[in-house]
Nucleic acid binder design. Sequence first.
DNA 1: ATGGTCGCTACGCGA
Length: 257
Amino acid sequence: MKIASWNVNSLNVRLPHLEQWLRDAQPDVVGIQETKLEDARFPDTALAALGYRTVFAGQKTYNGVALLARDRALDDVQIGIPGFEDEQKRVIAATIDGVRVINLYVVNGQDVGTDKYAYKLRWLAAVHDWVQRELAAHPKLVVLGDFNIAPDDRDVHDPAVWNDGHILTSTAERDALRGLLGLGLHDAFRLHHDDAGVFSWWDYRQAGFRRDLGLRIDLTLVSDALRDQAVASGIDREPRTWERPSDHAPAWVTLSD
DNA sequence: ATGGTCGCTACGCGA
């Protein structure tokens, strides 16, 4: 089962890219972030034509998440973090073929020390507690999404800039991610690759992609129980080369049967 | 340090 995460930065604009990439990459499960669509406008019919069932939680203008599953049911759908009041649609989870999949659009946080940064840390703490409970109930767990955190210096193009005081790489953010991993999760990409300089996001500004000024912030985490089944992983740079692209590339992991 | 580019929406906000 190939499971992927992609921040599409407006599904309205990026639907043709998503359709093309689904045909190319043939994922079985996809977590989408930043759909920026109200549910009434979600393109479930277009995705069904490619064989994908969908569940989604959207809002106008900002945020919005979805899960796609090819020829498989999406059961026990959960929208939002249980017990955490949040108007922003950033979380959707479902069980697919006995694997619990949690799709996260983690708060960006703007800048260290801002209100949005405090919200990011509160939000991550709520995710931590919820994932702990989910792991107890579902040992076969995948947590994927746009984490808006680069795990370590290998995951940034310039560690001098992206340092312990910078948003997306600050100590508190990385500690929160480490805490999540400490529950019994593994960054699937790092099970198969230890090289630096493989990125999933490049700023639209300053020709970030052309100059490869990127970060790896789109992650697929697999639980201890799935670790041995995670046989391959990667990031598909190609959609980032297409015309009018998302600023993120898809990240994926393949689980053996 | 600032501003650069997108998407949404209609101007500034969020990323």
